[in-house]
Simulated assay, not measured.
Amino acid sequence: MARITLNRPDRMNALDREAWGLLHSAISEVKSNPDIRVVVLRGAGANFCAGADVRAASQRTEHPLQRMRTISDVVRDLFELPVPTIAAVDGVAVGAGWNLALACDFLIATDRARFSQIFARRGLSADCGGSWLLPRIVGMQKAKRLLYLAEMLSASEAYALGLVLKVCAAEAFADEVESLVGKLVVAPPAAISQDKELINATWGMSFSEQLLRENAAQAVNFATDGPIARRAIASGEQPVFEGKWQL
């Protein structure tokens, strides 16, 4: 399991150029390490992430489109990681910070967490995947409400919209995150990785195309952790999944 911490607590973990680069490097390390089965993304201190550091961005000289492409690469690679990802959100998660969390597979929040698609307040439109992620989670009309009005939501309001998997008291937060990590670590890694890829690709696939992709994934499982599960069931034991080719 890997933990990635956004570590600029004096700026509410707002990301400047260096921080985006470090985050990208951490994600790349996870992608290249076959032993990592789960990633937890969190913020240092009392907040998750206040988005991109607008003050730092205003001091940069490269073309803004190039700057945005660099940031987009980070979010894309996080979204496409082949292992389950958990955003552990305490305090503020706004703008790019919230969309980083939404790009993870699961978002667990404390009851003091607050969320906003704050872009419109800054004269900006959505970035970091917000315009793609939000309609798929909450539908078109609610996504437009979140983007146009840039409201600040409480953790319970975000939960009611389906944007948070679970809300818990701050004192129970670490235990809730670790509980989910524990369940994911023992899951069959090849099957879960393929499930993630299948679900993420759904929006661009027809039903028939998705069936073909499912069939190919299942064929992989038949020669990976499927045999381990069958043997364990036959002997009445708990399977220990390895994610390794069995043939």
Rank of each mutant, 00 (worst) to 15 (best):
R112S: 11
A113K: 02
A113Q: 06
F115W: 12
S116P: 07
S116W: 08
Q117H: 07
R121F: 02
R121T: 14
R122S: 13
G123N: 08
G123V: 14
L124V: 07
S125I: 13
S125K: 11
S125W: 09
D127S: 12
D127K: 01
D127A: 13
G129Y: 11
G130V: 01
G130R: 04
G130M: 02
S131Q: 03
W132T: 15
L133D: 02
R136T: 01
G139L: 10
G139E: 05
M140I: 02
K142Y: 03
K142N: 06
K142C: 11
K142W: 03
A143P: 10
A143E: 07
R145H: 15
R145Y: 08
L147E: 11
L147H: 04
Y148D: 11
Y148E: 11
L149E: 14
L149Q: 12
A150I: 10
M152D: 01
M152P: 00
L153P: 00
A155H: 06
A155G: 04
A155F: 06
E157C: 06
E157H: 06
A158D: 01
A158E: 02
A158Y: 13
L163H: 03
L163T: 09
V164F: 04
A169K: 10
A169Y: 02
A169D: 06
A170I: 04
A170R: 10
F173P: 05
E176T: 08
E176C: 04
E176I: 01
E176A: 09
E176K: 05
V177E: 05
V177M: 07
E178Y: 02
E178R: 07
E178G: 00
L180W: 09
V181P: 01
G182E: 04
K183T: 01
L184A: 02
L184R: 05
A187Q: 06
P188D: 06
P189I: 10
A191K: 10
A191Q: 09
A191T: 03
I192Q: 10
I192D: 04
S193Y: 00
S193L: 05
Q194Y: 06
D195Y: 08
K196I: 15
K196T: 07
E197P: 01
E197G: 00
L198M: 12
L198T: 13
L198W: 11
I199W: 14
N200V: 00
N200S: 05
N200T: 09
T202S: 13
W203I: 02
S206W: 14
F207E: 15
S208K: 10
E209C: 00
E209V: 00
Q210G: 06
Q210T: 10
L212P: 00
L212M: 14
R213A: 15
R213F: 09
E214H: 13
N215A: 15
A216G: 15
A216K: 12
A217C: 12
A217E: 09
A217P: 05
Q218G: 07
Q218C: 03
A219K: 01
V220E: 15
D225G: 03
G226W: 15
P227L: 11
I228M: 08
I228Y: 10
A229H: 12
R230M: 14
